[in-house]
């Protein structure tokens, strides 16, 4: 397994190089640059071409695409992520500022959705064809088909504006000094994000559990006279976990990349909303850094899924 992990980690480097080049190329092909986004179209006629050239030179935008990519790459290798073009803030500072917000939300949602999704999916499978199963199936279908922004707005309308139980959005308010202080702020976005994820986990775990319960080893376990709870939870559930782990594993990158829509709806200052702003403003050092982080997270998630799958299901061999 160690050889497998080392080999996968080594493959990660060239993959990140290729993907970073493609992202950089994509940015290059989008119309305009950071300077053209900094100047409001309504005052752009008051900026002289010389001033524009001065600005582009100051941000290194006067160099060729390959030169800029090379400089960026050398800096990254040296651990220098550079500065945001729009505000001059170091990218590491921006990421360190935004990442805790994203992690709070994502970890909350991931844990909540995994726990609730697995429990409901298992119940649904064990009571196949019952009213409970039908209800949970309908809820699951609604969960995966209704857009999360809609859920978010409805939740704000009911719980923040009508019932006045929770804040409408934002992460911190003046006077919040600890995690407990701003816990009320995370509940709505966290639960809305969780609900969307829960629906998926529930659907996956239900079908995996049904598949698992129809296998021969379950019949064998029953014939041995094992108690039903042990058959279902120890033997059936363990095998059913494999596809669920794959699904959850591929959601790990959202821990880093954030959920753009939920962050926008709930004014949550995470990495996702920063990324969108950076793309809108052609702030290429910031876009590249966040993209690279996300790529790394996806590759690592893939590795973790492979390792976990092998651990859960002894029939899977890494190679």
């Amino acid at each position: 397994m160690l050889t497998f992990i080392v080999r996968r980690l080594l493959i990660t480097l060239p993959m990140m190089l290729v993907i970073s080049f493609l992202v950089y190329l994509g940015l290059e092909l989008t119309p305009g640059d950071a300077v053209s986004h900094m100047i409001d179209p309504e005052v752009a006629n008051e900026v002289t071409p010389e001033q524009l050239a001065q600005l582009r030179a100051a941000y290194g935008l006067d160099k060729s695409f390959i030169e800029r990519y090379g400089i960026w790459l050398v800096n990254i290798v040296q651990g220098n992520f550079g500065h945001s073009l729009s505000g001059g803030v170091s990218i590491s500072a921006i990421v360190l500022d935004r990442l805790p917000a994203t992690l709070e939300l994502s970890v909350f949602a991931l844990l909540f959705s995994t726990l609730i999704g697995c429990v409901l999916g298992t119940i649904s499978a064990l009571r196949r064809g019952s009213a409970t199963d039908s209800t949970l199936t309908v809820v699951g279908m609604l969960g995966v088909s209704i857009p999360e922004f809609f859920f978010g707005l409805v939740a704000i309308l009911i719980f923040a504006l009508h019932l006045n139980w929770l804040p409408v959005g934002g992460r911190l308010m003046p006077g919040d000094e600890s995690f407990i202080d701003h816990l009320p702020n995370i509940i709505l976005p966290g639960i809305v994000l969780s609900l969307m994820m829960t629906a998926g986990v529930m659907r996956y775990s239900r079908s995996a559990m049904l598949d698992s319960l129809s296998r021969e080893f379950i019949r064998t376990a029953r014939s041995k006279g094992l108690p039903e709870w042990r058959i279902n939870l120890v033997h059936g559930f363990r095998v059913a976990l494999t596809p669920v782990v794959v699904l959850i594993g591929f959601r790990l990158p959202t821990l880093i990349g954030g959920s753009v829509i939920i962050e926008e709806v709930f004014q949550w200052p995470g990495v996702g909303s920063e990324f969108i702003e950076a793309v809108r403003g052609s702030d290429y050092p910031l876009v590249m850094s966040i993209a690279l982080m996300s790529v790394f997270a996806v590759l690592m998630a893939s590795l973790i899924v492979d390792v976990l799958t092998a651990l859960i299901d002894p029939r899977v061999r890494l190679g």
């Binding site: 900094m38 600005l55 100051a58 073009l85 001059g88 935004r98 934002g170 911190l172 308010m173 003046p174």
Partner: peptide
Amino acid sequence: PAEFQQHPFWQNPVGSGPFKIAEVQMNDF
């Protein structure tokens, strides 16, 4: 001058008006 907006001053500026900044939680409040 070309990096006027990028100066660190604009992270927590000092002014002269009737209200002064007491706390900056960037992107929060």
